[in-house]
């Protein structure tokens, strides 16, 4: 897939995932915690294609999320980019031999995303006690995202074997 084709695919694809995030994800909530579908998509791309590409996906996905979800515009992009920097560490050769890497990347990226978002919302909206929010929202959401990454691992390994998504 060429670079321009990759961009052409990336923007609507992320728009669709953000749409599902705002409509479907709440129905997938467990104990009030919903999965971060855009984050999972961005982490998958980062693991397969590396941080360079992942950053673009994070920026675009974040804009879509904020347009559809009502967060401060650009805030989700920054948080997703933080997640990409963490998940990018999984983009190494050993990833292809270790199926636990996607799980750990999902977990750590989920924490990075949640903490970054928490910091931004604290800055703009003055949220309550951070430790409680971390314990009750950020960590459970990261575990949920990591579990979904584990489920996606076989597909991820196939995708990486084929050269993956390009942008």
């Amino acid at each position: 897939m060429g670079r321009s084709t990759g961009y052409a695919v990336m923007v609507p694809l992320l728009g669709l995932v953000a749409l599902l995030q705002s409509t479907l994800a709440p129905r997938l909530a467990i104990l009030g915690i919903q999965p971060d579908l855009v984050l999972i998509g961005v982490v998958v791309v980062t693991l397969v294609q590396g941080s360079h590409v992942g950053l673009l996906w994070a920026f675009t996905g974040g804009i879509w999320l904020d347009l559809m979800g009502g967060g401060p515009l650009g805030g989700s992009s920054l948080a997703l980019m933080a997640a990409v920097l963490v998940a990018g560490m999984g983009h190494h050769r050993f990833f292809f031999q270790n199926p636990l890497v996607p799980f750990m990347a999902g977990l750590l990226a989920g924490i990075a995303y949640g903490v970054s978002l928490l910091a931004l919302l604290w800055l703009f909206q003055g949220l309550g006690p951070m430790d409680v929010l971390l314990e009750r929202l950020v960590l459970p959401a990261a575990v949920y995202d990591a579990a979904l990454m584990l489920l996606a691992t076989p597909w991820l390994l196939t995708l990486s074997g084929r050269g993956g998504v390009n942008a």
């Binding site: 941080s51 673009l56 920054l78």
Partner: peptide, 28 residues
């Protein structure tokens, strides 16, 4: 196995990160 991302320099990654972060901050 090598990938395109690995071949790119950290400098390029840093530049892209800076550019996109500035874009996001501008939007904010």
């Amino acid at each position: 196995r090598t990938t395109r991302g690995l071949l790119r320099s950290p400098k390029e990654l840093g530049f892209r990160l800076l550019l996109l972060s500035l874009g996001a901050l501008l939007l904010l």
